[in-house]
Design a protein around this nucleic acid. Structure first.
Lengths: 377, 377
DNA sequence: GGCCAAACTGATAGCGTTACCATTGCGTCG
DNA sequence: CGACGCAATGGTAACGCTATCAGTTTGGCC
């Protein structure tokens, strides 16, 4: 879709600043940027044909297209986004509601959605939601701001009241990285259960048989999926699921500290701990170090998400990578598609995209030092 | 500036989807959102007056303004950004060039600049710069994308080649958080020297006299300013600046690890370490813990920047808060002002804004355990 | 009470693009 | 061989807003 004009054309628009004022044809025209008409004149065709070319319509003859492309390159023309959406008649604004600004998740998410938004030529309005603000007032604000649809990254995607309120207001939404089952709500996610399953299998294949697990915040549905994956892999390998090795966390570093302390205080501590996210994994590493344990020598620690924290700390974390920016892009696409469909009358079923994850091995995992206790169960 | 319409007006636009099609006056009109004309009709004034009201022009009589405001609220009207910029005739696009996506700095920066961009009704194009991409090609890309100005957050603001290339291409830029002296380049920053001075003074007032320092990456000019502040406070207090207490870091966690290890391996280690950013401070805490030192009991550790990492780890870091989002906002404003001035012919001197910082006390600092060695020097 | 300036308000003409036809050209078939 | 269909193009009229300038009030003052 991107208009990949090849030439680099450093263009002679360096010292135009002063010279520009004289030949301005219209009084309103402040900056003499070339318009579609200029291109049309240069190429000897009508503006309409140029419009067709820049929009990649198929009806234009190859020869004509070439002429137009040449004119575009020559004039260093770029279409005006404003005029486009105005004329196009479908000015779409989508909101991105976030609530966890500290997360480094957000920047990657923002970059991805921003990029896709400009590609799909929709406006992205980024809005923060504080716990203090009532949901009703947020929805009212969106309505007032003429937002056509909303993207809900975690943890908002799991906030039932929000989803409901949006539904009642008739604002379509797409949930990102939710762990809930496919529903009326469109969603983009990874297979959390499968990813956790793979990570656990990885630890088992390394030779670990006592594997601790730090659960995620129960208010996020993905937490349950991750735990399921852990249990499934253990069960499949004939290993017991031991309650004492499982601690409740809340996705924060602080909660990871407590959880890890709890698990490592056991008389017979595990040789590996799989935390439901990187923050808690980092906390586990910190506790291990404080207890004089080497990671991964004495303890393997794995995370989930592959946020920047995973590569910030030492050792760098083996973790599950979520394609955050791709998910953001997908969310915008899904939402735009849904809005288009809705406008043209046909309401398709809500899409539920599942993107690929990847297990990223770094320096925080290794085979257990003591050789695994014989046999399973 | 924000149009704070009070009423929540849940508006009857819930089930309009089907009903809408019938009374559409023009065939093109897809969504029957109210236009400025609708508001004008409702208020019994001309569209022009409505325009003046929504743009906050002073010439409108209070009574008229009230009528219009009422109509706006009644119809739940929101102006079309596209039409606005198109009619306004000054479609401005500014680029935000970033190179360190992992930084949690970025999301806050993005949110701030995005917000201000929509307020100033300019388009913000967010662009990533990889080390692999040549500077020339980035600049060519900006030129081709008709970018009118560029915002350079760190570390790009200190990349001389980039600044030069932009200058040659005639693209105005504004440097954010640079440590360089005011120059032709517009800039928004905090007083790094003063902030570091204050932090060091704070440590001294706590009773510390042997204070370690981890320098920042020399390729960022702010590093030098921070070091200067440290030296100034020490000197002012009559304390010696001891080379052995100063280690070179590069702003990364990893480099902080090495630097802290080096400093703490001294026979007579300092009672406090001031790291030039939070990542390195976090690393220092990790090393301290690994060495069995309590923070802040045995060692005070302070950071700089107040990124999310500062409150993620335990103990939470005492640090210097940069108003990142305000700086981003300011950068957009400065750039827009500069572009406006440039367009209208008068080239003002480049602005150089200095925003306020703040020393944030958290749990990582305390008075030294041993009582300070008597006397100064 | 009338006149003038100043304070408001309105009519008109675009901004750059695309939707919707109308038109042209050309090969094909009756 | 002329009508017909299809493919490729062009003309025209919006899209929703604001700049500009031309009215129309209003109020002050003699």
């Amino acid at each position: 879709m991107t208009n990949d004009v090849a030439a680099i054309s450093a263009a002679p628009l360096a010292i135009e600043s002063i010279a520009a004022l004289s030949d301005t044809r219209s009084s309103r025209r402040q900056r003499n940027a070339p318009t579609i008409n200029d291109v049309a004149a240069h190429a000897g065709v009508s503006p309409m044909t140029v419009s067709r070319v820049i929009n990649g319509e198929q009806v234009v003859r190859a020869a004509t297209r070439a002429k137009v492309d040449a004119a575009i390159a020559a004039l260093n023309y770029a279409p005006s986004a404003a005029a486009r959406t105005l004329a196009g008649g479908d000015e779409t604004r989508i909101g991105l509601l976030y609530s966890n600004p500290s997360s480094s998740y957000l920047s990657e998410f923002l970059v991805g959605s921003l990029d896709q938004a400009s590609r799909s030529s929709v406006d992205l309005v980024v809005e923060k939601w504080d716990e203090e603000t009532s949901i009703a007032s947020v929805v009212a604000h969106l309505l007032r701001g003429r937002i056509d649809g909303v993207i809900l990254p975690p943890p908002l995607c799991d906030l039932d009241e929000m989803v409901e309120a949006l539904g009642k207001a008739g604002i379509p939404a797409v949930a990102v990285a939710t762990g809930r089952a496919p529903s009326a709500l469109a969603a983009v996610s990874i297979d959390d259960r499968q990813a956790a399953y793979e990570m656990t299998r990885h630890l088992i294949s390394l030779g670990h048989s006592r594997i601790g697990f730090i659960k995620g915040n129960p208010n996020q549905t993905a937490s349950a999926r991750r735990f399921e994956g852990y249990v499934a892999a253990l069960t499949e390998a004939g290993l017991p699921v031991q309650d004492e090795l499982i601690a409740q966390g809340y996705f924060t570093y602080r909660s990871g500290l407590d959880a890890a302390e709890h698990i490592l205080a056991l008389l017979d501590p595990p040789t590996a701990i799989f935390a439901s996210n990187d923050d808690m994994a980092a906390a586990t590493v910190a506790i291990a170090h404080r207890s004089g344990l080497d990671v991964p020598g004495d303890l393997t620690v794995c995370g989930f998400d592959d946020t920047s924290l995973a590569t910030t700390i030492w050792p760098e974390l083996t973790t599950i990578r979520q394609p955050i920016s791709a998910m953001a892009r997908a969310a915008v696409e899904v939402l735009v598609r849904q809005l288009k469909g809705r406008r043209s009358g046909d309401a398709e079923a809500a899409e539920h995209l599942v993107l690929d994850h990847a297990l990223i091995r770094r320096q925080s995992d290794a085979a257990p030092r003591m050789r695994p206790r014989l046999g399973g169960r």
